[in-house]
Design a protein around this nucleic acid. Structure first.
Length: 575
RNA sequence: GGGCCUGUAGCUCAGUUGGUUAGAGCAGAGCGCUCAUAACGCUUUGGUCGCAGGUUCGAGUCCUGCCGGGCCUACCA
């Protein structure tokens, strides 16, 4: 019987373009989505794994200005920087796109046109603060002034962070531009498009209700937005900016909207689709090749679509983007599962870009190989609640799990074999009760591992994987070939052969989490990486006489001195 | 203010629809092994499950209140 291959579409929330992301950003979306993508590929799914840089919006423009660069050039450079870091962390995107691409321009304008045709767009005239000195409209939080409630002078136009009172920009006393400090501000009348998502409230509500298996974090945030106060509010989807997707109605000009662009939160999720089109363009594929992932009328009906994101992104993915898709009246693929994450904190506080607090992706790779970070971060991925990075925990986790349990296992058995039998799998003896016992143990753990991975219970899956590594050490300790060898070399050879066969199995099972180490193990054993269909068969895969080599130490330990040094280096200015 | 999440061993966390003596990893202690990155294995000490009530034959699990931590609250993205 020919079984149709499962097809899995995976998107990671788009990292914003304005700077290098820290480990908290990494672990909240890109890293777990990569682990999941690698797992799905390993077990034979057809996978399309998409990410992109999110390049529009005021912060991108300001970051470019600060860097003294044209915003388009700035974004192009930062995209390359982020793409390089993604490669450094071995994030296996099928395509890493850009929300500023022509594909996204066209598709965003297309959606807007469809939504307008369907009566889902409303033109609203509103008042916005304009800064003459800066020559631009200012988003609420880029206006600062004195809080009318508590007198705090650094209050922002959306909220006072001192007394937490929510504000309107016009509430501020002595308002000034947060960009230039200029007080030459005026209120201007300007027209904007609103997405009438309130019309889809009941439909969205019913849709969310069907998602019984989604994380509580995901559904509770969606429900809050649907039912809080007056319920789901319409949302402005355009801005008075230069940099972005120009407002058009499909291919046509949009009267009265000249010089305006779509709001970044309208175009960013559409980039998931557009990036898949970019993938097709970059790989000599046709439109049909990407549409079979996104159009349910063109082959995407059997696709399972999973999104990964931090909790701050949930409202846009549960409400705004589905409203865009539903409202278009076209058969685009809706998300099937939303995996959301809490935050990773840094040593007792939050990661902070402005204070230089915490570890950023580029710095992390300067210090240690990506597998170290991937493993520790995934063993602490903030699934249930916020979690915390500390150097002590990092050192302990990496040294124990990777160096002692896995790395040392590979080291001890390959070196023992080389010393007693040479660098090839030894012949002699048959597997007995001890080996069958290990096969049974690993089979059970593997089943748990696969169940947890399928459910995206990443942290539990790391526990299963680790237990499978431990099983190797337990076996060796009990078999003690170094003792047996003296009296019965054949029996020792059996144990060694079995233990060596564990290495390719470990390579395959570990690959989603620590791909580089997996390759090292597979290369040392002269095999490819293949997911085991049957553990017993997999542990008979290396025949007697199969040549291997002893790999270099896979994971050097982090010393106490190194740990203390890094802790001091990354404590930030205000520590 | 409102809403949501969370509080289980020194630390990080599991605990299924309420059902016997509450589990794992790390850290600590003891023993063993000596192939290995002073690595590994075995055994073991730690918990009135935030506090106070309530429902129940029975509560870590359900309800109420209180205390602590966190997040969100729609123009940062």
């Amino acid at each position: 019987m020919v079984r149709k291959m499962s097809r899995t579409l995976i998107t990671s929330a788009l990292p914003y373009i304005n700077g290098i992301k820290h480990l908290g950003n990494l672990v909240g979306s890109q890293l777990p989505s990569d682990v999941y993508a690698r797992y799905c590929r390993a077990i034979g799914h057809e996978v399309m794994y998409i990410c992109a840089t999110d390049e529009h919006g005021t912060p991108a423009e300001l970051a470019a200005t600060k860097a003294g660069k044209d915003v388009a050039d700035f974004c192009a450079e930062m995209h390359d920087v982020q793409a390089e870091l993604a490669r450094g962390f071995r994030l296996s995107f099928d395509h890493y796109g850009r929300s500023s691409s022509q594909r996204n321009h066209a598709l965003t304008q297309h959606f807007a046109g469809r939504l307008a045709d369907a009566g889902m767009i409303e033109e609203v005239s509103e008042k916005q603060v304009y800064s003459n000195a800066d020559g631009r409209y200012l988003p609420d939080r880029y206006i600062e002034g004195e809080c009318p409630n508590c007198g705090y002078d650094g209050a922002r136009g959306d909220q006072c962070e001192n007394c937490t009172k929510q504000l309107e920009p016009t509430d501020l006393i002595n308002p000034r531009s947060a960009i230039s400090g200029s007080t030459d501000l005026e209120v201007r009348e300007t027209k904007h498009l609103y997405l009438r998502q309130s019309k889809l409230r009941d439909k969205l509500d019913a849709w969310i209700d069907t998602k019984k298996d989604w994380p509580i974090l995901t559904t509770s945030i969606a429900k809050k937005w649907l039912h809080d106060g007056d319920g789901l509010q319409d949302r402005g989807i355009t801005r008075d900016l230069d940099w972005g997707v120009p407002v058009k109605r499909g291919d046509a000009e949009w009267g009265g909207m000249e010089g305006k662009v779509f709001y970044v939160w309208f175009d960013a999720p559409i980039e998931y689709i557009a990036a898949t089109a970019e993938w097709a363009d970059a790989n000599g594929k046709t439109d049909a090749d990407w549409e079979r992932w996104w159009r349910t009328d063109k082959g995407a009906d059997d696709v399972n679509y999973v999104q990964f994101m931090g909790k701050d992104n949930v409202p846009f993915h549960t409400l705004s983007f589905p409203a865009t898709i539903m409202g278009s009246g076209e058969p685009w693929k809706l998300v099937d599962y939303i995996k959301s994450f809490n935050y990773l904190n840094y040593d007792g506080g939050q990661f902070s870009t402005s204070k230089g607090r915490g570890v950023f992706m580029n710095e992390a790779l300067d210090i240690l190989p990506s597998d170290y970070w991937r493993w520790w971060l995934m063993t602490h991925v903030p699934e249930g609640s916020d979690s915390e990075f500390t150097w002590d925990s990092f050192q302990q986790g990496v040294n124990k799990d990777l160096a002692d349990v896995l790395g040392n296992f590979v080291s001890r058995i390959t070196k023992f074999c080389r010393a007693k039998f040479g660098e090839e799998v030894p012949a002699g003896g048959e597997y007995g009760a001890a080996e069958l016992d290990v096969i049974a143990t690993i089979t059970a753990r593997l089943k748990s591992y696969e169940t947890n991975m399928a459910a995206m219970e990443m942290r539990k899956a790391t526990g299963d994987l680790r237990a499978i590594w431990v099983a190797g050490n337990e076996y060796l300790q009990a078999a003690a070939p170094w003792t047996v060898f003296k009296e019965n070399p054949d029996a020792a050879a059996t144990s060694v052969r079995f233990a060596l066969n564990l290495i390719p199995l470990y390579a395959a099972l570990s690959e989603p989490f620590i791909p580089d180490a997996a390759k090292t193990m597979a290369d040392a054993m002269n095999v490819g990486i293949e997911w085991p269909k049957d553990v017993g068969a997999a542990l008979n895969a290396l025949p007697a006489g199969h040549a291997f080599s002893v790999p270099d130490v896979m994971f050097a330990k982090i010393s106490d001195d190194q740990r203390d040094e890094m802790q001091a280096r990354f404590a930030g200015q205000n520590a």
